[in-house]
Write a protein that binds this DNA or RNA. Structure first.
Length: 290
DNA sequence: CGATGCCCCTGAGAGC
DNA sequence: TGCTCTCAGGGGCATC
């Protein structure tokens, strides 16, 4: 599921019931996620206040007043569902439903948080590719999960100079380079396909062979597609849901992703093609992307 | 350094 | 209805 826009969408939906609030109860249901829960996970999180809820790459980080940060990765199918502890509740533009009977007791509900917002937050991940762990906030950047991560694509530092340097001399296809979290952190399969299409660059072109004049459009396309997707609440193919439970809407704005065999949306009379690169599907228009 | 393939796991959808 | 097959947004690891 979740690439940067989906993770950011979930973070925004968690913020009103998490930031500034205390985790009054924490229950882990099963520990066999990609990474086992750290020792005494519940004990180290229960009673702690969340001082800041932020995002790095595809990770959600909840800084706790204990000096540790709760690290959440949604993997491919992870969800964070927020329920109001009383009746349905609106906070800003977010509407949180009343917790239905058994919310948090589902087959793939792995962690349940109660906060004094008050709210119940359920971490559900049926494929169990997600993870939840605790890291010393001060040493977060040194942790193995974070130390090799590249730049945030929506940060001002992500500019043509950075992009040129990141791609320089790379003999890997641009598609693979943009997916490399060590270069740019947060892009995934969907948004790389969409950005390359919007920039008119073939996914097969070698990263180091991208012409200098193509860098500004590529940079702009990456930033725009991410921003637009966040504004749309992310893309829901199967699993992604916002914290409110609502699906995202950006899948309706895909120009190439998932459109194999369909006509190119730029009206070039070409057909969208699907190829496999590094084991993942790539969608592109051979006529518009070179 | 780079490319490829496999693995983790479950479920949805297609085809028969 | 039900079986089997393929595929899925991520990412770590082994291998060549």
């Amino acid at each position: 599921m979740p690439e940067l826009p989906e993770v950011e969408t979930v973070r925004l939906g968690l913020q009103p019931v998490l930031e500034g609030y205390v985790l009054t109860d924490v229950v882990t249901r099963r520990g066999d996620l990609r990474v086992p829960f750290p020792l005494d996970f519940a004990g180290r999180t229960k009673g702690r206040k969340v001082t800041l809820l932020r995002r790095r790459a595809k990770y959600i980080l909840a800084d706790l007043d204990s000096g540790e940060s709760l690290v959440i990765h949604l993997g491919m199918s992870g969800r964070m569902s927020v329920y109001s502890s009383g009746k349905q509740r609106r906070i800003g533009s977010y509407v949180y439903d009343k917790a239905p009977e058994g919310a948090g007791n589902g087959k793939h509900d792995h962690v349940v948080f109660e906060t004094d917002a008050p709210a119940r937050i359920v971490f559900n991940d049926h494929r169990r590719f997600g993870l939840m762990t605790l890291v010393d906030t001060e040493r977060l950047e040194e942790d193995k999960l974070f130390k090799d991560l590249g730049i945030e694509p929506l940060s001002p530092g992500f500019n043509t100079a950075y992009l040129a340097k990141a791609l320089d001399g790379k003999k890997t296809p641009i598609k693979s380079a943009l997916l490399d979290q060590r270069l740019i952190a947060g892009l995934g399969n969907i948004y790389v396909c969409e950005a390359l299409f919007r920039a008119g660059i073939s996914p097969k072109r070698l990263a180091g062979a991208i012409k200098k004049e193509k860098l500004p459009p590529l940079l702009a396309a990456i930033k725009k597609v991410l921003k637009d997707a966040i504004a749309a609440g992310g893309s829901t193919l199967r699993d992604h849901a916002q914290a409110t439970g609502d699906p995202g809407n950006f899948q309706h704005h895909f120009l190439v992703y998932g459109r194999e065999g369909k006509p190119c949306k730029l009206g070039c009379k070409g057909t969208v093609k699907r190829i496999v690169q590094a084991g993942r599907s790539t969608f592109y228009c051979p006529k518009c992307q070179s």
